[in-house]
Design a protein around this nucleic acid. Sequence first.
RNA 1: GCGCUCGUAGCUCAGUCGGACAGAGCAUCGGUUUCCGGUACCGAAGGCCGGGGGUUCGAAUCCUCCCGAGCGCACCA
Length: 562
Amino acid sequence: MTDYLQTQLRAVLDDLGGVPDDFDVALEEPANEEHGDLAANTALRLGSLLDDNPRSIAETIAERLRDRVDPHRIKSVEVAGPGFINFRFAQDYLFDGLAELLAQGDTFGRTDAHTGETANVEYVSANPTGPLTVGHGRNAVLGDTIATLLEWTGYDITREYYFNNAGRQMRVLGQSVRARYEALVGEDVPTKTLTVDDEEVEVPASFPEDGYLGTYILDIAEQLYEEEGASLLTTESLAPFRQAAEEAIFADIEATLDRLNIEMDGYANEQDLHDGGTVQKILDGLTEAGLTYEENGALWFKTTEFGREKDRVLVKQSGEPTYRTPDIAYHTTKFERDFGLMIDVFGADHHAAYPDVLDALDVLGYDTDRVEVILYQFVTLVRGDEPVKMSTRRANYVTLDDLIDEVGADVTRFFFLMRSADTHLNFDLELAQEASDKNPVFYLQYAHARICSIIDKAEEVGFSPDADVDLSLLTHEAELDLIKELLDFPQVLRSAAEARAPHFVPNYLEDVATTFSQFYDHCRIIGEDNDLATARMHLALATKTVLKNGLTVLGLSAPRNM
RNA sequence: GCGCUCGUAGCUCAGUCGGACAGAGCAUCGGUUUCCGGUACCGAAGGCCGGGGGUUCGAAUCCUCCCGAGCGCACCA
């Protein structure tokens, strides 16, 4: 409908003349329903442009619109206030839309706005040094849902996970495992004391200062001991320890993601980029561009040339690249695969890290307008009023797995999605566990289950969803409100996709559930005259479809009963 | 010190492009049930949209300064 009216408005403006081609004919849904179903501020914005009274411009436009608009779609075109043009939908339009919704079923909400376009969404991307944290959870769920939203607008999506497995972190990981293994195998292994977060921890003497203290490291060491016995004591190489750790931790990560209904299409890792020569290639490229220099034994990237505060190191004194070098290389592989859109989901702590990656890609001739970075703010766990204390360093935190154990996958996903990415998230464990109307997930799922039950009951007394139906019997205000709400769904998904803002969807679904409850409160289904009952049953069915599709987009289940 | 994000009702937060009297949920107070899931619905109360200046016909939204919070400012990722 928005598209239709925009076209009509544009045509009128062309007739009038004097309006620039790039003038934005925006339509909006008025907050106040007295102002119609859609409103255009066109005349107000043209006022200064045409140097005329907005009110009279609006009258002229409205006059011409009335002549050309399809009366089966638009009931009225009115001028109001300082010069708004308000449109009211014809009921036929609502009934046609509802019939269309029912016909589309599971696919209602999908649009072809971006059909034929490809996009890569990179998310999670946690390095395999330990279990996923709650913060990774927000990343994972956000990325996954943005990907789904893009799919629903037609994009061909690749979900990708990139991790560093070649650098310092993995070496420290290997050393941590080795130290635990040696302590396990040997007898009277000397120990030392580390002070972490003001607490003293006793570890084997060979344990690295910045090693990983989590108990999962002990598990991996034990596993190695069971499989290899003491044979690894004599090896010089860290590789077996590192590898065992990477595999074990990665298996855990994948299992956790699977619980959240997340499946990646592909994984990319740093080591492959070294082995394949991609890292060297970008170093050569940047050097050829004259943007690198050596100093103190390190290779620097002249980021100050792009207005950054300081230059950045590409290759450390030690000969190892910094994280940004393979990251640049990784992005070039995405460009080589020719994605039209590349989205990276990062925590707010990374915000300073990507500009130089983009600078480098620019220099190398890639169109960085195709890369978008989504930053999300941190998550704080609270239980009622009490913040949950965590120390990442000691791995003394609530892991993502712990969180899912405690509140379930649906609630975990929903709570991560219901707030805008750039607001700090307070995750209330007490509320999350509550099975009541205080908990928005519950409210939504309850509405869905209730509708399923109503439909089942209606079928028991002889109503069929396949029966001929006269939707035009739905004339009660509560019915019309609900139909309008349901028909917004495709546009909501599209806006959410384009704004990369999944939280539009939970907010909208809550409105749907509320509007349905209002309808249900006013209008009986069973017990009414047969034709009306059939029509209302179809409206319930349509609501169920929207709730189900919406929950599906969010990656949540839509239970039939609870 | 510099950069990014944020500051909206008691609490948690919406408010896509500047628009018509600033919204929701929870909490509080009051009401509704012979009836298809009352785990619901209706209503009331509650806000100088952090503060000052500016741009505009019009600002929670844009610009600027100030205050406050979080996160960064590595040869960690």
